[in-house]
Nucleic acid binder design. Structure first.
Lengths: 321, 321
DNA sequence: TTGAAAGCGCTACCAA
DNA sequence: TTGGTAGCGCTTTCAA
């Protein structure tokens, strides 16, 4: 930069980085700072990390569907916590590359850590990332991946809680909404499976109900409701639950007498309906905890891989069941 | 990399980049590709863009509050569209740095374009970014910033539409909810101002109503509602509107007879309430359009700055007003 | 206290 | 058709 501002590039580096191993005279410091301000000099992160051989970048692939309430808040908290630990968080918008191929794209940025929600990253992908210098790979999803730390989030437990609750309340013919919106399979499949498991070996039965997130689709489902002979429904989440509950009520089906309805996510809005919506509350790990896991892993890449169950699910019983 | 795999680094570069100016024999290509796969070689993006002098990175600062439905979808669409144009989208989690300081942090990454939502970036910041090589800076907010392209999103028009609608329907004493949650001022202030402007010079009046996003806060407001003597309320958005409407109904206030309620954002859930929630529908530009604006600006940085009004607001009249 | 120079991984030019 | 090499901006070691 401003070697036109009197000194050598080395000196500039010393001054701007406050290198303690080297003493620079006050007048020189001042001149450097002044020149930097004047020229609007900003160091070049790529050059720096190229030289250093590592970065402080934590890469998180952007979700392939717009993040929901819960995940959005979680991500935000995480970002903040990592920032406090002096990491730079980068959400990388991977278009549609499948798992291990996406890993290559991420690896090009040479992040110090990668945090991958969902399935799709295999042991191959983890290996690519590690070889390219990532000191920590953390997956957040239903199962651990070889070579990576894992935050185990099994959405089946959400369905399981819902199913068990409905069964306990005396319901036997249970519908499970599966959103038609693509990209949600990741959550909806395990939730459905969880309900199945909860009812396995009992006299209860499970019926899969595809549903689009619009009033028409809900009305159509409601119109054929009595034909389905269901006495309860787990509606994937609170939003679908609200939609379906309204459609059922409009079709003259009384909630919870004729059909019990339960959602998930414990949104505030669910409490506003009448009857108030029962729901499965989901506890996500705090962003701070996850940030600390990442930091630990980065500082000591040799440490044994951690795997934490990290999704707490519990029923909040209100009036709709 | 694999100069241990037989050839020179230059040849590797040629092969992997499919450099057309140079012919490489088929056997050599094969050997290079094989070695690359075997070693799990991934090019180093930083080194590449250092050498090239530019990157294809579009930087978007991550929002300081978890993104809402509308913005989340917009961002997602934008990311996809930019991806199609072969840009890499990076959301940079700037912690709490104020505007122009944050610009320096962004500039370190030498993005080819920067897309900044909200206020907070000043002409200084724009200058820093451009000097550091950004070929396009696009702000998305209420007013244009010197040196940057602008997508003009004036949330005052949202409030204005709501205010005018309520006035037309014969309402005169109008409350405006202002969320207590921090980080929302960016939107709530202009919306409030818009209502004020709509009623300016009429016999209507505007009352500011702070409200937290929880049932207690809503109940407290509802309890003192009659004392406020209002006949209508614009509730910031649909979520606050749903919350408040329920609290008012629980307090025995009839909607819309005694008090009209209108929200904003046109969420699907608002249609599920009874009475159905009137709302201000907000049209955001499509992600594709914005992506094309960015691309144009990058290809021709000399072109005159574009400024587009980009927020359409129109009332969707349902039953609550 | 400061400067010269090497080298991080990559690509583009020139020579072989 | 391939290889050698300079140089992108930075930090760090070594010398002055």
């Amino acid at each position: 930069m401003a070697r036109l501002a009197g000194v050598s590039r080395a000196t500039v580096s010393y001054v701007l980085n406050n290198t303690r191993a080297v003493r620079i005279s006050e007048p020189t410091r001042r001149r450097v700072h002044e020149a930097a301000r004047e020229l609007g000099y900003v160091p070049h992160a790529a050059a720096r990390s190229l030289r250093a051989g590592h970065s402080r970048m934590v890469l998180i692939p952007a979700p392939s569907v717009p993040a929901g309430r819960l995940y959005g808040r979680f991500l935000h908290e995480l970002q903040w916590a990592l920032g406090r630990l002096d990491y730079t968080v980068v959400q990388h918008g991977t278009i549609g590359l499948p798992g291990d191929e996406a890993a290559r794209a991420w690896a090009e940025l040479r992040p110090v850590a990668v945090l991958v929600p969902g399935t799709g990253l295999g042991p191959q992908g983890v290996a690519v990332l590690k070889r390219s210098g990532a000191r920590a790979v953390v997956t957040v999803g239903p199962e651990a991946v070889e070579g990576a730390h894992a935050l185990l989030m099994d959405h089946a437990s959400v369905g399981h809680q819902a199913g068990a609750h409905l069964y306990e309340r005396g319901r036997r013919r249970i519908g499970v909404v599966v959103p038609e919106e693509s990209g949600l399979d990741m959550f909806s499949r395990p939730r459905l499976e969880g309900v199945r498991r909860a009812l396995d070996g009992t006299d209860g039965s499970v019926t899969e109900l595809p549903l689009g997130y619009d009033e028409d689709s809900a009305a159509r489902l409601a119109a054929r409701w009595r034909g389905l002979g269901l006495d309860a429904v787990f509606a994937y989440n609170d939003e679908y639950a609200m939609l379906l509950m309204r459609a059922l009520q409009d079709a003259g089906i009384s909630i919870p007498e004729e059909t019990a309805v339960i959602g998930a996510d414990d949104l505030m809005l669910g409490r506003l309906l009448r009857p108030r919506l029962s729901t499965v509350h989901i506890d996500l790990p705090s962003g701070r905890d996850l940030a600390e896991l990442v930091d630990r892993a980065v500082r000591d890449p040799g440490a044994p891989l951690e795997r934490h169950p990290a999704l707490g699910a519990r029923v909040v019983h209100r009036e709709s069941t």
